[in-house]
């Protein structure tokens, strides 16, 4: 170890792996993984989120699951909670939709309106 900067480099790198255990305020992605969700293909959606987050090296995002969200016919469903904003619910999710949600909503803060439950009900 030669300098504080070197230590800081290691710290930053390692922080990514333990970040989850700290209290955080960041974005929360919740995937509905009830039987209905799983049957409709929630698992590939979840994996797509993990893959994309890893690829883009996004910090401060947690991906969790929940049980049946309630509207089984619209599964797989995903809810995105950003601090200080209303929850956004996406329906009939596919791995391809995930990429857009990550790029536009998670990274840039603009929800993808056409995928949301609101768009379906119109």
């Amino acid at each position: 170890m030669k300098s504080l900067n070197e230590l800081e480099e290691i710290r930053k790198r390692a922080l990514e792996s333990v970040n989850l255990r700290k209290d955080r305020e960041g974005t929360r992605v919740v995937v509905g993984m009830g039987t209905c969700g799983i049957a409709a293909g929630a698992r590939p959606v979840l994996l797509a989120f993990l893959e994309e987050i890893k690829k883009r090296n996004i910090q401060d995002v947690t991906v969790t699951q929940t049980g049946c969200i309630g509207v089984c016919r619209l599964e797989p469903m995903v809810e995105v909670y950003r601090p200080g904003e209303e929850k956004v619910t996406y329906i009939k999710m596919t791995p391809d939709k995930v990429k857009r949600i990550i790029a536009e909503h998670i990274v840039n803060g603009r929800s993808v309106t056409e995928y949301t439950i609101g768009a379906e009900e119109k």
């Binding site: 170890m1 300098s3 504080l4 230590l7 290691i10 710290r11 790198r13 390692a14 922080l15 792996s17 333990v18 255990r21």
Partner: peptide, 25 residues
Amino acid sequence: GVIDPENIDEYIAFDGYKALGKALT
């Protein structure tokens, strides 16, 4: 109960060895 004690990186992630760095430099 927070870190893996067999992994120095996790200790460093929680500000480990920063005090040593500060003291020495």
